[in-house]
Design a protein around this nucleic acid. Structure first.
Length: 595
RNA sequence: GCUUCCAUAGUUCAACGGAUAGAACGUGGGUUUCCUAAACCUAAAAUCUGGGUUCGAUUCCCAGUGGAAGUACCA
């Protein structure tokens, strides 16, 4: 049992024994005592005043006395206003360390047979352009979230719904047919997703030019001119052919999608994310249509005169929502219904989490209601893990203005920067040549991932390329460096030191601070799982690394004369390294053992 | 217009309703005969405005201001 739980329960006992008030131990959350006061844990006694009928100071004192007398872990206490500051016995901290080191996966809850099955959908790219910075945030959050949920004892299925059909793909296909001259990834040496993306841009360019020309020739607005665009017409034709199963169009579509998938796979692999099951929209969109028609029969939806199908959500405080277009084709919402259906056929899902940007908040509000309406009992419980947009210092990312940050390029740049910074003398000195590239990759990607994950997911974030590759301060490399340095110390230590019995050792203030932070890890993992926030892990790991650095500079480890002290500090360091690594694993970041 | 989200040092981020609001970067000043100085120490610097709830509000509620997103045949 963790220390704060012990204190919470003892406090609850104290309140019951002293004042006859029954409080649940869960409602008492001891917090870490602020630095300027003496003690390790603090209990706020204001909530008990009504039962004690005494002043805060007096109440705190009585509880404190009770704890010293009845709780083994408590050494002493002091009272400031309504705050009861408790000092834990140093020897108790040592036993905490010993417990932690014995646990194989400290802080991680095992998956059992009756664990909940959680499906996490993330990434969800379109197949008409390569992944960009927005996807990077999505992928990193989704992957980390899956890891965190797993660490909380859930069975997790990571899934990706690939949006492989629709007008946007047809645009790329059309442009490739018209101006591609048979270009392939092999002939151009380009990644498939980038190649297709180029044609998507090319379509847009020609389309814009055409609209402008029509508008000028006929003296009408561009909006009007758009309707006359032959290019758009052709793209629509192509989509119709696709839906009709036209063999030529389908063959081209398959070929080009294959190129894109190969490109995506490379990007995912490099980013270090993966999926257990991939769904393709081309396979799910018809299912949704079926489900909607079913709902229409049951009378939960209605049909307009033009043939389009709608859901009336005004009783739920929302609007009317389109489900099938007047020409019978499905929209985004319909497809999501179909995808949900297939997923629940494939897995006994207890909880579904969609990692999708907050611009779709409304969509998921509606989806939850609709899934419920068409008879999926899980619908209302779906979780939209909504995250904020990524902004750049010079404004928003706009593909048309070329201000998109490409995911592949970004990763390249991060690694290049790591390389450039490591050229300074003394850097990577101890790393064998054959490992250098691997270490640089870990540092570059670690910097990127940490920079993005340390921010509260809900908030819009500013991505400053210059700052993200700063390797000082609250950054991934700072934490990696701390880890690597511990490894170095451990490598240089004697095997005998690790065997020394440290049970009798009484840690000093700095050491207790570290132990207390280590003891918090399990709670932090739980908390991150509850609030679905990798940022909580990130901030915790940083604080731990910082505290360790201070400790490291305050004392010597290997040069310490006293064997027990030396052994204790080594074990403490080892435990810090272990937790740093576990924490980073939950973020999907690798730890180099030398750098 | 309507709906949702956000608002904290110069900047980027923290703070279950708890003590004097923490960090990081940047700025100023320092530390290396010592296990990895990509480190450490130190100084200056902030809760958008107005109400309410209570022992106590950055946090919860209401109003306003500012920013972002969505708003029905795009995904």
């Amino acid at each position: 049992m963790s220390i704060d739980k012990i204190i919470a329960e003892s406090t609850a006992q104290a309140v019951l024994a002293l004042y006859g008030l029954e409080v649940s131990a869960d409602s008492i959350v001891p917090q870490t005592t602020k630095k300027e006061f003496e003690g390790n844990l603090t209990v706020v006694v204001f909530p008990f005043l009504k039962a004690s009928h005494k002043r805060p100071e007096e109440t705190a004192q009585e509880i404190g006395d009770y704890l010293v007398a009845n709780c083994e872990a408590v050494e002493k206490y002091n009272v400031i206003k309504g705050f009861l500051n408790i000092t834990i016995k140093p020897s108790f901290w040592t036993s905490v360390l010993l417990h932690m080191t014995q646990e194989e996966n400290y802080g991680i809850k095992p998956v059992t047979d009756d664990s909940k099955l959680v499906m996490v959908e993330y990434s969800s790219p379109n197949t008409n352009k390569p992944l960009h910075l927005g996807h990077v945030r999505n992928n990193l959050l989704g992957y980390s979230l899956a890891k965190i949920l797993e660490a909380n004892g859930n069975k997790v299925v990571k899934t990706n719904i690939v949006n492989d059909r629709g007008i946007h793909i047809c645009k790329s296909m059309l442009a490739w047919l018209k101006w591609g001259e048979g270009a392939t990834p092999e002939s151009t040496g380009k990644k498939g997703d980038h190649l297709i993306g180029d044609y998507y841009v090319l379509f847009d360019k020609h389309y814009k030019a055409e609209v402008k020309q029509i508008a000028a020739e006929q003296g009408i607005s561009e909006e009007e001119a758009e309707k006359q665009s032959t290019l758009m017409q052709e793209a629509r034709e192509m989509l119709k052919k696709w839906e009709a199963g036209d063999p030529e169009v389908r063959a081209l579509w398959r070929k080009m999608n294959e190129w894109v998938y190969a490109g995506f796979d490379e990007t995912y692999k490099r980013m270090g994310v993966s999926f257990d099951k991939i769904y393709y929209e081309s396979e799910t969109y018809l299912e949704g249509k079926e489900k909607v028609l079913e709902g229409l029969e049951k009378g939960v939806f209605y049909r307009k005169e033009d043939g389009s199908v709608w859901a009336d959500l005004t009783p739920d405080g929302l609007d009317h929502k389109l489900l099938l277009r007047s020409d019978g084709t499905s929209v985004y919402m319909t497809q999501d219904i179909g995808t949900a259906k297939l997923r629940y056929q494939d897995y006994p899902i207890d909880q579904m989490i969609y990692v999708v940007g907050n611009e779709q908040n409304y969509h998921f509000q509606v989806l939850a209601l609709l899934l419920d309406k068409v008879g999926f009992k899980w619908g209302k419980d779906l979780i939209h893990f909504s995250y904020g947009m990524v902004e750049l210092p010079n404004g928003k990312m706009k593909s048309r203005e070329g201000t998109v940050v490409d995911a592949d390029e970004l990763m390249d740049e991060m690694i290049d920067t790591a390389r450039a910074m490591s050229n300074e003398p003394g850097r990577l000195a101890g790393v064998p040549d054959e490992e250098k590239e691997d270490v640089l990759r870990m540092i570059g990607l670690g910097a990127l991932k940490y920079f993005i994950l340390k921010v509260d997911p809900r908030k819009n974030m500013l991505f400053n390329p210059q700052e993200s590759i700063d390797f000082n301060g609250n950054t991934g490399p700072f934490i990696q460096y701390t880890y690597a340095r511990i490894q170095s110390v451990l490598r240089k230590s004697d095997a005998a030191d690790m065997q020394t019995d440290i049970a009798a050792y009484e840690p000093n203030e700095k050491e207790v601070e570290l132990l207390q932070r280590l003891a918090d890890f399990a709670g932090v993992v739980t908390e991150a799982g509850k609030s679905y926030s990798p940022a909580i892990i990130a901030n915790y790991v940083f604080e731990l690394a910082k505290a360790y650095n201070q400790f490291y500079h305050d004392c010597s480890i290997l040069k310490e004369e006293n064997a027990v002290t030396r052994a204790f500090r080594l074990q403490l360091s080892q435990m810090v390294a272990k937790v740093l690594k576990s924490g980073f694993a939950l973020l999907g970041i690798e730890m180099p053992s030398r750098m």
